[in-house]
Design a protein around this nucleic acid. Sequence first.
DNA 1: TATGTATGAATGAATG
DNA 2: CATTCATTCATACATA
Lengths: 167, 167
Amino acid sequence: MTSAGHKITARQRWTPTPVQLQILERIFDQGTGTPSKQKIKEITSELSQHGQISETNVYNWFQNRRARSKRKQLGSSSNNAESELETEVESPNEKKTKPENLLSGQNPAPRAEDLCFQNPEITSELHFLGVMSNPTTFNGDEHLSGKMGMPGSYNIYDQAGDYGMAG
Amino acid sequence: MTSAGHKITARQRWTPTPVQLQILERIFDQGTGTPSKQKIKEITSELSQHGQISETNVYNWFQNRRARSKRKQLGSSSNNAESELETEVESPNEKKTKPENLLSGQNPAPRAEDLCFQNPEITSELHFLGVMSNPTTFNGDEHLSGKMGMPGSYNIYDQAGDYGMAG
DNA sequence: TATGTATGAATGAATG
DNA sequence: CATTCATTCATACATA
């Protein structure tokens, strides 16, 4: 822990408290995507009671939320090589004690396709499937954070349907 | 942690194989800088042949690569700027694991406010806004002036008077 | 085993 | 509103 100097440097970045998040999500879920400024003010007012927050934060939050909401899109193009049900959990016993540049820069990696993911011995106890939901009884919105495809998993996208890129 | 001390962590990070890395670096080095969505798909397609991977991963990789690249260059010309690591978060109480999706909601024991950059007095009173949906409301008001109002610190970037809404 | 470093992923903010 | 940048966190991974 180092107990380094705990600078009072507050985050430049606003961090919504769970309570604020709850409220925001609630409002967002209620519909009307981006609330008007008037609404923003009201929301900010309410949220400010739970912590520091500004109208800009609220606005940004909604904007980001909206953008992120687009997840579950990005239909696979015609060409998409996936669906590999390979549980290639061979035996990456190879320690390959990487000195310091084995995984950096070009490296004649010998048959590296096998050691893509760290030895997943979890295949045995891979029962939990994101059931970590908390019984918070809050509005079941739509935010779902999938992850990247794992050997044995199925999820594909998570961040947003489209990460962007100009066409 | 040997006895059922496992968390429901099902979020293993995608680990690019040396081969994938090589391809990615090659593309990145080619100057394609920000590959378009289509490009991402192609790359993902190609890389998926070498191991599990998703477009999101590719996208993130490029994003991180660029950011990291920029960061690397810093601290040479003018001012020095090291200390990239270091979690200088004061951590008033605890902040090791980020629950992210975990919400407290109206939990009888709400004590998560300590996550924000400020330290609320924890009034812990769920007022549950009265900012309900406001029918027929477009933004037509004047600009909104609401920065963040950091207690003691101000935002380094100018966020403009309004967050850029209706023009 | 514990710690440090490297890197992918999440999110808030900026920009166009 | 769409896209990209910047910052932070969590986790993999190498090392002591």
